[in-house]
């Protein structure tokens, strides 16, 4: 009967920073800024450079924000990376058959929603473990994307793994920028802010946090937990679908490597930002944005320094551990 107290005994240090590890990340950003200043010089803060950072932050941010719904609801969706690849493949292959582009995009996102639905049925309907199910989906869809790419109708490069389909309008849209701010990034950031509002201030936000924070308690409070979890999975897969289409715009093709490992990098950044992939209910979009930003900023520093890229992974892995550790020192969640 002492059970209810036991978990508290286990973690003596309590969370001091309910707002997520924002301060830790900010400290990280300041440190990287100083390092960049030392290595790259003031050019590190040039508009040119900022554009580079933000341009490649935009889509991961969008994907991460959509996926944060499922993280918050406590049903991690590992299949988002594959869904990005699949959506791009479906969109590009359909586009080679000269269908209406909106229809292609719609069908690509619909495909992802369909598989998101399967995730939902397995996880919510059958009560299967989310990590196991979405891991399976990750593997399956990665394979499916490669198969789909084989059906492309473009004659230019017959044996490419990816499908080449350069769409001017879409490319112009994905590459458009306002001064040094890429439009896609502005959209993604606006979405992040709206999401912050939804999560912190609306009824739906409260409910999704409650379901992720404590499923039993949420059900007892009369929340439609199954529906919330199911929708969150649909949202994350839909977001990946949209991002996949936009990636085709950006890259002029779908590629079988597109989205490979993306789930890990996006979730690593979100974990830096205060989300947890093991339990729901924690984290907020602003923190997630900062987590993604700090990773993008850091990769940019490595890019600019022209470092041997083999060191990049070493640095990134270390950075992940350092930031998470600093956050724990500040009262973040400890393991055991």
């Amino acid at each position: 009967m002492t059970a209810t107290l036991a978990p508290q005994q286990l973690s003596k240090k309590r969370t001091k920073n309910a707002g997520g590890p924002s301060v830790t990340i900010l400290a990280g950003i300041v440190i990287i800024s100083l390092v960049s200043l030392q290595g790259v010089g003031f050019a590190a803060f040039s508009t040119d450079n900022l554009f580079l950072i933000l341009n490649y932050l935009a889509l991961p941010l969008l994907i991460g924000m959509f996926a944060s719904f499922s993280l918050l609801a406590g049903v991690v969706d590992l299949s988002i990376g594959s869904m990005v690849g699949l959506s791009a493949a479906v969109f590009a292959v359909l586009a080679t058959y000269e269908l209406n582009l909106w229809l292609c995009a719609f069908l690509a996102v619909l495909t992802c929603l369909f598989f998101g639905c399967l995730n939902g049925i397995a996880i919510v309907g059958f009560n299967a473990n989310p990590i196991a199910v979405t891991l399976g989906m990750l593997v399956a869809l990665r394979g499916l994307a490669r198969v789909v790419n084989k059906y492309d109708n473009s004659a230019t490069l017959s044996s490419t793994d990816g499908t080449v389909i350069f769409i001017d309008g879409l490319n112009t849209f994905t590459e458009a920028s306002f001064s040094f701010l890429p439009w896609l990034f502005v959209i993604a950031l606006a979405f992040t802010l709206v999401l912050q509002l939804i999560i912190s201030k609306t009824r739906y936000g409260r409910h999704i946090k409650a379901v992720g924070g404590d499923l039993t308690a949420a059900v007892r409070a009369g929340l439609p937990a199954s529906r919330i979890k199911f929708t969150s999975l649909l949202i994350s897969s839909g977001g990946a679908g949209i991002a996949g289409v936009l990636f085709v715009g950006k890259m002029g093709s779908s590629s079988s490597t597109l989205g490979t490992g993306m789930e890990f990098t996006v979730y690593a950044a979100l974990m830096i930002g205060g989300y947890s992939i093991l339990r729901g209910g924690v984290g907020n979009p602003i923190g997630g944005f900062l987590g993604l930003f700090v990773i993008a900023y850091f990769s940019n520093y490595i890019d600019n320094m022209g470092f041997d890229t083999r060191f990049a992974d070493v640095f990134l892995g270390t950075l992940l551990l350092v930031i998470v550790y600093l956050d724990i020192r500040r009262g973040g969640e400890e393991f055991e």
Binding site: R203, K209, A210, A217
Partner: peptide, 30 residues
């Protein structure tokens, strides 16, 4: 049946959150 990750107020009102009296904010379920 308390949710660890939420505040005391949020816990008290979970599932029965009061909406803002402002009709616009209310429409957005704020």
């Amino acid at each position: 049946a308390l949710i660890d990750t939420m505040t005391a107020t949020q816990n008290v009102f979970v599932g029965r959150e009061k909406l803002s009296p402002n009709p616009l904010l209310r429409a957005f379920r704020i």
